[in-house]
Design a protein around this nucleic acid. Structure first.
Length: 607
DNA sequence: GTAGGGTTAG
């Protein structure tokens, strides 16, 4: 009830700046013939109303005979019948005669329901409308709504519910479009539709639109709440726009809303996953800020940190956080999975298995993610027998292997040349009705590319597309890499362009692979062009980019340019890795060229 | 009635 009151008072504000538009509506309304359908029909309105009220549909059908069911609808409206009764007749006649009523009547119905404050009816109606509507664009819906009535509150409420209906029915794009149009019409939306819209946009990775909706909400004075801010912060974090996420955190404080444990967890996770150099320090700083603001870290906070340290190849710190967590909180399956995976990725299989036992001791059941992490650990150590034993163990625990389980094992068998076992698993996957996905095909394509069997790789690519699975950026990376290794970098570049056409965004790996291809062919000019293209796409050269370019220049005897690139790299604060060291050693120093890395002696000493 | 955490393939 309170919510309704506050939304009607905000409608008063909305009226002020949309008066010009309202005048247009009124003018147009007088031009269209909303209720001028001939009414000389052989039916009685009171009887019809009675039959609808009692839901005596077959009698109603008999009574109406050949009457124009649309004319009945018009008469019901004109007689000022109960909106819920009209709604019943509207839905029944639409289903019964398998027709779609004109948009004009739909809008009239919505208005009468809104005026009667039958909001849940509107919600349900719009849900069905959005699901079945293929005919009416947002443009015509908005147009008709404002023609049929100039009640601003009603229209705002209806459009608010329309946006929500779009989002719930996974028509996010249309929901976004309606949000935009609502701004043009001056209809005031609420967080009830804006938050779900933002949430859907985040899930679809449309962060540009998330930023737009957020800015518009501020501009249109739609009062954002804690959820709004947390959703936006999450969206920004997911694409690594951490500074903007911090800005939004400050915005919310300025609006008098304090970040809670979810907001802080989101930010910490953002830094852990996309924070770049020294990310764990930054994550830790947020943790400290959180505690200072009296927001208590929970299991999820610790899980995020544990995973963060593991991915940062700092399992020791992850274990420390894990011990600290145990002081006051209970680790859950996700905690164990993160740590087990971290240990597995760092080759510490014994400790990982020990943790699995610890879980069991605590009554925590390992799930398929636990098994997948352990299987992956054994696979990476070429311990295929142990991996297969774990795989066979999955069913004993009442679990089912999933696509990731199969992909992990198929990939490992392929990499270790155990083709028979790989094929057998693929068949077992099909038998158990686990659908191979794009990643499964990527494993096979990678396998054949490694074997230099491009024909078979292409056959699998084709098979994949026949099955309705789409090539993803990783598929392209594999194909580009294979072509580059065949000395066909030009052809590989065509695939890069194909990616754009398919709406796939190439990653650093894609560009670096192609650059490496050109460098191997000695075509430095083309390689540098790829770098330019990459930077145009907003991707900065990373350590791999420099490794590739430095090596490419060395191979061509352009040691001076290679040296300049090395300096440029260090100036940008990029940390040399083992590959950089090997290039400098083998391609420069062993050939009698001493790299001149002014001011970076300290950095180079870390080689 | 809306927000946060774990597994594969380059």
């Amino acid at each position: 009830m309170l919510k309704l009151l506050s939304s009607s008072s905000s409608c008063l504000q909305a009226r002020v700046h949309v008066q010009g538009h309202r005048r247009t509506c009124i003018r147009l309304c007088s031009l269209i013939s909303i209720s001028t359908i001939p009414s000389s029909q052989p039916f009685s309105l009171p009887i019809i109303s009675e039959l609808i009220a009692k839901q005596h549909w077959s009698e109603l059908k008999t009574h109406l005979k050949d009457s124009n069911f649309i004319a009945v609808l018009h008469q019901l409206f004109d007689a000022g019948a109960d909106p819920v009764l009209i709604l019943r007749y509207f839905s029944w006649s639409q289903n019964n005669f398998n027709v779609t009523h004109p948009l004009e009547l739909t809008c009239r119905l919505l208005h009468s329901l809104a005026n009667a404050k039958k909001y849940s009816k509107i919600r349900a109606f719009l849900d069905g409308f959005v699901r079945n509507n293929e005919k009416h664009s947002n443009s015509s819906i908005f147009h008709m709504l404002s023609m049929c009535g100039n009640q601003f509150c009603a229209n705002s409420v209806i459009i608010d519910m329309l946006v929500l209906a779009y989002v719930k029915n996974m028509k996010t794009r249309l929901g976004f479009e309606a949000f935009q149009r609502a701004g043009d019409y001056g209809f005031k939306l609420s967080v009830l539709s804006c938050n779900p819209l933002l949430s859907a946009l985040v899930k679809e990775n449309e962060i540009g639109y998330v930023e737009y909706v957020y800015k518009e909400m501020v501009r249109r004075r739609i009062e954002a709440d804690l959820f709004t801010f947390s959703i936006v912060i999450n969206g920004l974090c997911k694409v690594g726009k951490l500074n903007k996420a911090r800005d939004v955190t400050n915005d919310m404080k300025a609006w008098g809303i304090s970040p809670n444990v979810v907001t802080y967890n989101t930010l910490i996770d953002g830094y852990c996953k996309k924070g770049g150099l020294g990310k764990m320090h930054k994550a830790d700083a947020i943790l400290k800020e959180m505690v200072a603001n009296n927001v208590h870290p929970n299991e999820i906070t610790f899980n995020i940190l544990i995973d963060g340290f593991c991915k940062d190849e700092n399992v020791a710190s992850a274990v420390k956080v894990f011990e600290e967590m145990k002081q006051g909180l209970k680790p859950n399956v996700i905690t164990y999975n993160s740590l087990i995976n971290g240990l597995c990725c760092n080759g510490k299989l014994d400790e990982a298995c020990g943790l699995q036992d610890e879980m069991l001791g605590l009554g925590l059941k390992p799930n398929i993610v636990t098994y997948n992490a352990l299987i992956n650990g054994f696979c990476k150590k070429k311990m295929m027998k142990e991996a297969k034993e774990l795989f066979d163990d999955i069913m004993n625990g009442g679990l089912m292997p999933n696509a990731i389980t199969y992909n992990t094992l198929i990939d490992a068998y392929c990499k270790h040349g155990m083709m028979e076992e790989a094929y057998a698993l693929h068949n077992s996957m099909l038998e158990r009705r686990v659908s191979p996905n794009t990643s499964t095909f990527n494993c096979w394509i990678a396998c054949f590319c490694r074997q230099g069997n491009m024909e078979l790789a292409r056959k699998f690519l084709h098979e994949m597309e026949v099955r309705g699975l789409k090539a993803d950026p990783i598929t392209y990376n594999l194909l580009i890499d294979a072509l580059c290794k065949e000395g066909e970098s030009r052809k590989a570049e065509r695939l890069l362009n194909e990616m754009f056409k398919k709406g796939l965004s190439p990653s650093h790996v894609t560009y670096n692979t192609l650059m490496d291809g050109y460098c191997r062919e000695g075509n430095l000019k083309a390689a540098l062009n790829v770098r330019l293209q990459m930077e145009k796409e907003g991707k900065r050269a990373n350590i791999v980019t420099y490794n590739v370019l430095i090596k490419g220049h060395c191979m061509k005897g352009k040691l001076k340019v290679a040296n300049e690139l090395l300096n440029e790299m260090l100036e940008k604060g990029l940390v040399p890795n083992r590959t950089t060291y090997e290039i400098v050693k083998e391609e420069m120093m062993e050939k009698g060229f001493l790299p001149d890395i002014e001011g970076h002696l300290y950095n180079i000493s870390s080689f």
